[in-house]
């Protein structure tokens, strides 16, 4: 679905990402993992044209992403940014349906889709008319997810969707998210710091460091066949559940 060909992004003279070449296969979940500041969010921004590469090309569905088609790419891609990015002046319903209303969907269609999504993400219906600051952290994450899924996009980009949640809610949401991914059969790119979480979701895990890909493969590849001493350090620094070989 997405591909990066020798992409480099430079901020203030420093390469924030790249050069990186990477393919995100259709219908699969790719997890980006790596230390803070390694360029994960930058990579997601490049995919939907929110930032322009200084070198190389970003490909979506066979065509290079450019300012002229970036909006079309975004309409086919749901993106939950790192901080959720819910609009405080709109209710949960207003946030989720904003784009559909802008596109002129009729009420019936909007409401039907909203009900479907609330069911899928197990979002309480009475929460729909509350403003983001009146919702719990977990509920906000679900609203962000519903908003990204509203237009039934082909791809889903999630930047640390489960950060800052208590472990129980997080585990619940992980299960739900995985169900959602399986149910909708979309191309998913997910960013996390947590190797356990990566293992849980990923068809492919990509470990980044300082804007470069250090290793890509399954979670167990990283655990048992590290390509670099840093991979070993990164993996061992995770105090999460141990990942066994050939799992999942």
């Amino acid at each position: 679905m997405f591909a990066l060909n020798d992409v480099t992004k430079i901020y203030a003279g420093q390469p924030a990402l790249g050069p990186v070449s990477l393919t995100f296969p259709v219908g699969r979940t790719t997890v980006l993992i790596g230390p803070s500041g390694c360029g994960k969010s930058t990579l997601l921004r490049l995919l939907v044209g929110l930032v322009k590469p200084d070198d190389g090309a970003v490909i979506f569905d066979g065509t290079p992403v450019s300012p002229s088609n970036a909006r079309a790419v975004r309409l086919r891609t749901g993106y939950v940014i790192q901080d959720g990015g819910l609009f405080p002046h709109l209710t949960a319903r207003g946030n989720v349906t904003l784009m559909a209303r802008h596109l002129g969907w009729d009420h019936g269609r909007i409401n039907a889709r909203l009900a479907e999504l609330a069911e899928l993400t197990r979002f309480p219906l009475d929460g729909l008319d509350r403003f983001p600051q009146q919702l719990s952290g977990g509920q906000r994450q679900r609203v962000g997810l519903m908003r990204a899924l509203m237009l039934n996009p082909d791809a889903l980009l999630l930047d640390e969707p489960l950060g800052a949640l208590d472990p129980l809610v997080r585990a619940d949401l992980q299960t739900e998210l995985r169900d959602v991914f399986r149910a909708v059969g979309k191309t998913v790119v997910l960013v996390t710091h947590d190797l356990g979480e990566a293992a849980y979701f990923a068809d492919l895990v990509v470990l980044l460091r300082d804007g470069r890909i250090l290793q890509q493969g399954s979670a167990s590849d990283l655990w048992h066949r590290p390509a670099d001493p840093f991979v070993t350090r990164f993996v061992q620094a995770q105090r999460g559940p141990e990942v066994r070989d050939n799992e999942p």
């Binding site: 929110l50 975004r74 940014i81 901080d83 990015g85 609009f87 784009m99 908003r147």
Partner: peptide, 16 residues
């Protein structure tokens, strides 16, 4: 900035 970014990421045109 995140709010502006997420508005842009939705695919809304600048005037919207």
């Amino acid at each position: 900035a995140p709010l502006k970014e997420s508005a842009e990421a939705l695919g809304l045109p600048a005037w919207a």
